[in-house]
Computed example of a mutant assay.
Amino acid sequence: MTTARTLSIVTVTAHRPHAPEYHAYSTMLMRRAVAVSQASGWTVEVVAAEDTSVVETLARTDRADAVVLLGGEDIAPEYYGAARGYRAEGRHAERADEAQLTIARRAVDRGTPLLGICRGHQIINVALGGTLVQDLGEGSSHRRDGEPIERVMSTHDVELTAGTVLAGSLIDRLGRVVSTQSAHHQAVARLGSGLAVAAVAHDGLVEAIAHREAPVLGVQWHPEDPGAVRGQFGALLAAVTEPALAVAA
């Protein structure tokens, strides 16, 4: 008898009354990630980290076979040694920050497969001591500022780099050049401990990071977006989870 594989998908919050359009789009992305994961055989639990205590979030994700950290609000700058007051700064979710940063460190320590998307990608970097570019400025090609939420995604290519075993696996699954959907105004700056660059954009921005030893991957783009290449989210999740789960079995 095969035991069901459990996946924790960790979001920031299930409630954004101050930003209903953004919340509706974020919820749609989460549901798409859940649907693909379930179709791949995962038993999925969604945890909204800002809506409960850090202790409960850590407890609910403690026994998961793998974890996905989805996108959302900017990480509070205190966590990476920076100041508030930058351009395009919005609300922060410090309880979610603390819980997700701890989840990322725990995944590295335990060797738990972890996929970070957009904010989740940045969480992995900050959790391991890295820093962020706080704002890419107006006119960035990585987000369509001033557009309705359904048109905020920017389509651009990234080039994968084979700096780690995990990054090499991505190239095998996706190819060297990947079309992506992104909507970010921040980016990875200094890499965290143990991390390597796994993809870069045309302007040199880090678009993916992979841990050198643990099955931990972050991508700055949104493979769960409706405009993403079909099968991209599933391929990224498989690249992180399949080798680790095969060893565990």
Results as ranks from 00 to 15, higher is better:
35 A>S: 13
98 E>P: 04
153 M>N: 06
144 R>A: 12
124 I>S: 02
117 I>V: 11
216 V>Y: 07
18 H>S: 15
55 V>R: 15
6 T>C: 04
105 R>L: 00
139 G>F: 09
39 A>N: 14
19 A>M: 12
114 L>M: 05
164 T>I: 00
80 Y>T: 05
145 D>S: 13
36 V>D: 13
145 D>M: 14
8 S>L: 10
151 R>M: 10
243 P>K: 10
187 A>H: 00
157 D>K: 15
96 A>F: 07
62 D>P: 06
73 E>P: 01
200 V>D: 08
134 Q>I: 10
185 H>D: 07
228 A>N: 03
15 H>K: 12
151 R>D: 14
123 I>N: 01
39 A>G: 15
246 A>L: 12
119 R>C: 08
78 E>F: 12
48 A>W: 03
171 I>D: 08
35 A>I: 03
117 I>K: 02
212 R>S: 13
121 H>G: 05
114 L>H: 00
139 G>W: 10
140 S>M: 08
123 I>E: 01
238 A>Y: 04
235 A>M: 06
212 R>W: 05
233 F>W: 01
206 V>P: 01
25 Y>F: 14
152 V>P: 00
166 L>A: 04
50 E>V: 07
16 R>M: 15
103 I>F: 05
86 Y>R: 08
37 S>R: 03
242 E>M: 06
35 A>Q: 13
89 E>P: 01
9 I>H: 02
74 D>W: 02
41 G>A: 07
117 I>E: 05
219 V>A: 06
178 V>R: 02
140 S>Y: 03
11 T>Q: 09
94 E>D: 11
31 R>Q: 14
149 I>R: 08
167 A>N: 04
73 E>Y: 15
66 A>Y: 04
